[in-house]
């Protein structure tokens, strides 16, 4: 079963399409990084998958169920960008409410995690720092024992140590429970360690949707003479090229360096930035990988 399947998914607000023509097939058990500029539609896409927004066009399923359906809500946990919580309650009350609202609730996990974080259950949720609220929301999302986690910028309010700790905790849950995770993030450097699947969203459309391994295996960073770039277009599939004086740096989808060019493996950061710079370039999950311009 696929964690996420969308066909032609689109959502329009008044006159603009926040997401459009999204075809996505993310296998289960992946940690998917959702990357894109602000306003690219990441939040909209995640909200549709979470059942918080209804699509204008197309279809989507999460773990085989319709988003927002009872079956989906039983197996999918979501944490919205706004970190929704009952801010007038105390932490204990918030946990009690969550317990009341869910059939499956791992109270031990929640309590252990919060005490490991040093969060007092008598604290008022509204008075917690942004980082602590994010930790609380994340803890509750995981205490529901989901099979799929949808997180919209979960690390945004966290300090570097907390980011490391949260990612480590998430990865442990992935290792032990086979959890699938989709999270959007602006910090690309973290993604190579953590993500196994990459989705790049740009202006509401999917630019890249593939496993990290396949992407890193099929792309190379080429360095060579700036005046050789034009010729290079005939030899390899170029994603993006940067020229500076005499030297050029090219991100190419190829297995070997053409003569006159030096190749090295590309990093996730270079790959993502390269595609973001060229909105027309695509890696779509059709049979084989194809770059369409």
């Amino acid at each position: 079963m696929n964690a996420i399947e969308t066909r032609g998914l689109g959502k329009r607000y008044r006159r603009t399409w926040a997401v459009r023509g999204c075809d996505l097939t993310v296998p289960a058990g992946q940690v998917t990084a959702l990357v894109g500029p602000n306003g690219a539609g990441k939040t909209t896409l995640l909200r549709i998958l979470a059942g918080l927004a209804t699509p204008t066009a197309g279809t989507a399923t999460v773990l085989g169920a319709a988003p927002g359906s009872r079956q989906a809500r039983a197996t999918v946990s979501a944490m919205d960008q706004t970190v929704p919580l009952y801010r007038h309650l105390r932490v204990a009350g918030q946990l009690a409410a969550a317990r009341a609202l869910n059939d499956q609730w791992d109270a031990d996990l929640a309590i252990q995690r919060l005490s490991a974080l040093g969060m007092a259950t008598s604290a008022r949720v509204g008075k917690l720092s942004a980082g602590q609220q994010a930790q609380l929301a994340l803890t509750m999302a995981l205490a529901r024992r989901p099979r799929l986690l949808l997180l919209d910028e979960p690390l945004a309010s966290l300090d570097p140590l907390a980011r490391q700790d949260v990612l480590g905790w998430l990865m442990t849950r992935v290792a032990e429970d086979g959890l699938s995770v989709v999270f959007s993030s602006h910090v690309i450097a973290e993604l190579e360690r953590v993500a196994s699947y990459l989705v790049v969203l740009s202006a509401g459309r999917i630019q890249v949707a593939a496993t990290v391994d396949s992407l890193l295996d099929t792309h190379l960073a080429l360095t060579g003479p700036a005046d050789g770039v034009d010729d290079l277009y005939d030899q390899v599939e170029i994603v993006t090229a940067q020229r500076a004086g005499r030297q050029a740096l090219v991100l190419a989808r190829t297995g070997a360096a053409p003569p006159g060019w030096a190749a090295r493996p590309v990093t996730m950061e270079e790959l993502v930035l390269g595609y973001l710079r060229e909105p027309a370039a695509r890696v779509v999950p059709e049979p084989g990988l194809e770059i369409a311009r």
């Binding site: 918080l52 919205d80 609202l101």
Partner: peptide, 8 residues
Amino acid sequence: FTWTQGTG
């Protein structure tokens, strides 16, 4: 939050 819990 409420809409994504077990009860819809």
